[in-house]
Design a protein around this nucleic acid. Structure first.
Lengths: 347, 347
DNA sequence: ATTAACATCGAAATCGATTTCGAAATAACC
DNA sequence: GGTTATTTCGAAATCGATTTCGATGTTAAT
């Protein structure tokens, strides 16, 4: 039975040292394996430290070493399969490497995003990982990170202009493959439910779609492009309805996201329109539900785990380099994507 | 155009003070609105601080104030709708209150969970929020948190034995309501796809189910209980198949989770068994896909956002109390749940 | 015995901000 | 004028760990 005192002495080096009648210096050295400590003294210190459950005060260590061993992560949305799998990968790997992760959600607000950057810099995190909000136009907050000499790695939703490491997929190529898959299965009039006009990956997916249409001698029809503002299930549903009621001759849809695609599928199921016989649908992301919905959704696999892992790997490398005062070489890593054929498209 | 020197002087109070020819003390006081600073000096300090973009070194502040302004959060799984919405709520509200959140994922491993507790205590977070892993039996790591005088609030997956604040739903009552809903719609032979044997909420949901069966004079049949080990889509699918092939007389299923329920739905859809005509299904959680699957899934709404918010509120209150040396009153808050009727059950 | 080499230790500075306490200077009062 | 308030400032201690550098004492070498 332990008696807990109202005021318990904190376990510090000072305490350990005075308990053993030695100096703080020696106690510190004993625990850090300095050579100039006698075996006897070292053992005494190590034993007492273990007995008292000593752990170095991280505040003091941070101040001394100028490292926080914390990484900042800013993403637009947490409740989102792709991002939560990225977070997952980052947190796990970071922990293994001795870093903890502070996660923030910009909620697609650029103002909030800027505040969060400041918060992380004030906390003096060792590095920052970011996937940009759709609304980001002013890049000065990002430059501020770089000027503060805090390593920065952008992933997925990046800015090409910013000079730092990046991890992305080739959205244009992936969208091209998805569209090609539709064309190869015999579709000729392919609509595109695209994302908002600003974000680079939304633009790229549109361009990939368009290129495929043109490469395969189909005619690009502007009226078959529907622009999602919030990229929601509801929008997918509504655009599918609009498309259907418009009586346009369309035999396939490439949706910016699985969520949007599933919205469309739901509408067509309700309207008794057969997928893929009457209309083929392909999504983007390959989140869990794509394999579960009926019919199961063909899609482009977007490797969230891989992206998180590589982004963190790059960041840690830069943190190490910065610490040594070495120059950093910025890399842009493009991860491969695969088209996954399921039952919402013809073979 | 700025010239960036190889070695930039960090902006510290010391620098500001020496620049203005005053002491560090006065500079500090000027910025913290101490009364014993002349207006002229104060203005000079404030202006220079702004000009140089001074922010106090958080490492030093932490060391001095013994606060990190960081909260630790440990959950079993991130890629999980319920938990990601909890995280979401916590992070957002914490930020508003001036706290950042370090998130860790125990991955349902008790060993990992213990390491993570140590990590957070070593980092000297101001408080810890936890949802326990299924495998937790040894409660000493939790007691360690409490003994370290770090405020702790458990939510969702809790331990009743631990003396701290808790935020939960009444799983038993919620499961009772769900089962009652099935009974009221005319079902008489109700199977239960339950969760693992250890976790309290899995036990409680089972007990709620059983109580409803007994209260309404149906016979409890042990052979209609299927125990998920990992609570996955696949298990739901497989148990549905087993159930079907066993030729047991069953007209309804109460599944521990929407995910499991959706697994079952998928199987029955494939097997051409009509829902809810031939079999009714009700899930638990109300994650997004429940409204999207076909047929849409009746379920129990588990208020993730609300839970995150209240857990954080309790924690912040305890942090404040601890700081003032006040005694903490532990509360257990039970959040209400609703049965949501959709198309997988009869009216 | 004397010097050199080595082993073992600790005082003190440092990281940067905060706060206590007292000193100095000025203003206000009788 | 002398005393007391008031204003304004800064030296120094503190938070806890780390690291440099110098001081001992001990042993080995000549």
């Amino acid at each position: 039975m332990f008696i807990i005192f109202d005021y318990m002495e904190p376990v510090t080096l000072k305490n350990i040292a005075s308990e053993l009648g030695i100096s703080v210096t020696t106690a510190s050295k004993a625990l850090k394996n300095y050579p100039d400590v006698s075996p006897k003294t070292r053992k005494a210190v190590v034993d007492l430290a273990k007995k008292l459950n000593y752990t170095p005060n991280s505040f003091a260590v941070n101040l001394r070493t100028k490292e926080s061993k914390i990484i900042g992560l800013i993403i637009p949305e947490i409740v989102h399969h792709f991002f939560s799998s990225v977070i997952n990968a980052i947190i796990k790997k970071a922990e293994k490497k001795g870093y903890l992760v502070i996660t923030l959600q910009s909620n697609e607000s650029d103002k909030l995003e800027e505040k969060q950057i400041d918060l992380l810099l004030d906390k003096r995190v060792d590095g920052i990982l970011m996937s940009l909000s759709n609304n980001r136009k002013d890049l000065s907050p990002l430059k501020k990170i770089i000027e503060s000499e805090t390593p920065l790695v952008l992933f997925d939703k990046i800015s090409k202009v910013i000079n730092c490491s990046k991890v992305i997929i080739d959205d244009r190529k992936a969208a091209y493959s998805a569209t090609k898959h539709l064309i190869n299965s015999g579709c000729k009039n392919i609509a595109h439910f695209r994302g908002p006009l600003n974000p680079q990956n939304s633009i790229d997916r549109f361009l990939g779609y368009k290129k495929a249409i043109e490469d395969y001698k189909l005619t690009f029809d502007k009226s078959l492009i529907y622009t999602c503002e919030k990229v929601t299930y509801k929008e997918g549903y509504n655009f599918a309805k609009q498309l259907h009621l418009s009586n346009k001759k369309v035999d396939a849809i490439f949706a910016i996201t699985d969520l949007v695609a599933i919205g469309a599928i739901t509408y067509f199921n309700e309207a008794n329109i057969k997928i893929p016989e009457q209309i083929s649908i392909i999504g983007f992301s390959n989140w869990f539900m794509a394999s579960v919905i009926s019919p199961s959704l063909s899609t482009v696999d977007q490797p969230g785990n891989e992206m998180g892992k590589t982004a963190l790997k790059l960041l840690l490398k830069e943190i190490k380099a910065t610490k040594k005062g070495k120059k950093i070489e910025y890399k842009t890593i493009v991860l491969p994507t695969d088209v996954i054929c399921r039952n919402s498209t013809k073979k």
